[in-house]
Amino acid sequence: MGFLDFIFGTKKRQVAKFLENDAIILDVRNKSEWDAGHIENALHIPLNELNNRVGEVKKLNKPVITCCASGVRSAKAAKFLNMNNIEATNGGGWVSLKKKL
């Protein structure tokens, strides 16, 4: 197993673990990106709105898998959610995450 396999295999296992625990998918891309395509049944809260809408996510009382276009914004979102006592992991880009589902 190479280094990249180790890193990406770990992410895949983490996503699978979250899905087993009834996680929700949170897409943090902007509206035009969302409108161009998204994962069915995902929750859409753009990253720039997440601070004001974190209560909505808390009320769901479920673990969260964040996604965006490439994984950068979703990493920031997962870190922010974890800092607000919400179990979250970065699912990366939405297209690759959709393939894992």
Results as ranks from 00 to 15, higher is better:
1 M>W: 01
3 F>M: 13
4 L>T: 10
5 D>E: 05
5 D>Q: 00
5 D>A: 04
5 D>T: 05
7 I>A: 10
10 T>D: 13
11 K>S: 14
11 K>C: 08
11 K>P: 06
13 R>Y: 06
16 A>Y: 01
17 K>L: 03
19 L>G: 00
19 L>A: 12
22 D>V: 05
23 A>Q: 03
23 A>D: 01
24 I>K: 12
27 D>P: 07
31 K>F: 07
32 S>G: 11
32 S>P: 10
33 E>D: 14
33 E>Y: 03
33 E>R: 01
33 E>Q: 10
34 W>S: 02
35 D>T: 08
35 D>S: 04
35 D>W: 00
35 D>G: 02
36 A>T: 09
37 G>Y: 11
38 H>T: 13
38 H>N: 15
38 H>K: 14
40 E>C: 05
40 E>I: 11
40 E>F: 12
40 E>D: 12
41 N>V: 09
41 N>G: 11
42 A>F: 04
43 L>W: 05
43 L>E: 13
44 H>Q: 06
45 I>Y: 07
46 P>Q: 01
46 P>N: 01
47 L>Q: 09
47 L>E: 01
48 N>W: 11
49 E>R: 02
50 L>R: 09
50 L>D: 03
51 N>M: 10
52 N>W: 10
53 R>L: 13
54 V>Y: 00
54 V>D: 09
54 V>W: 00
55 G>H: 02
56 E>H: 08
57 V>F: 01
58 K>D: 09
59 K>T: 02
60 L>M: 02
61 N>G: 01
62 K>R: 13
63 P>N: 08
64 V>K: 00
65 I>Q: 06
66 T>Q: 04
68 C>M: 03
70 S>R: 11
71 G>V: 05
73 R>S: 15
74 S>W: 03
74 S>D: 01
74 S>P: 08
76 K>M: 15
77 A>C: 01
78 A>W: 11
78 A>V: 02
78 A>F: 11
78 A>L: 00
79 K>Q: 13
80 F>K: 02
80 F>D: 04
81 L>N: 07
81 L>F: 08
82 N>I: 09
82 N>S: 07
82 N>A: 04
83 M>P: 06
83 M>E: 14
83 M>S: 15
83 M>Y: 03
84 N>V: 07
84 N>L: 04
84 N>P: 10
86 I>Y: 06
87 E>S: 15
87 E>Q: 14
87 E>N: 15
88 A>K: 03
88 A>L: 07
89 T>R: 03
90 N>K: 03
91 G>R: 07
91 G>D: 08
92 G>I: 14
93 G>S: 06
93 G>W: 14
93 G>E: 05
94 W>E: 09
95 V>G: 03
95 V>D: 12
97 L>E: 05
97 L>W: 04
99 K>E: 01
99 K>Q: 07
99 K>S: 02
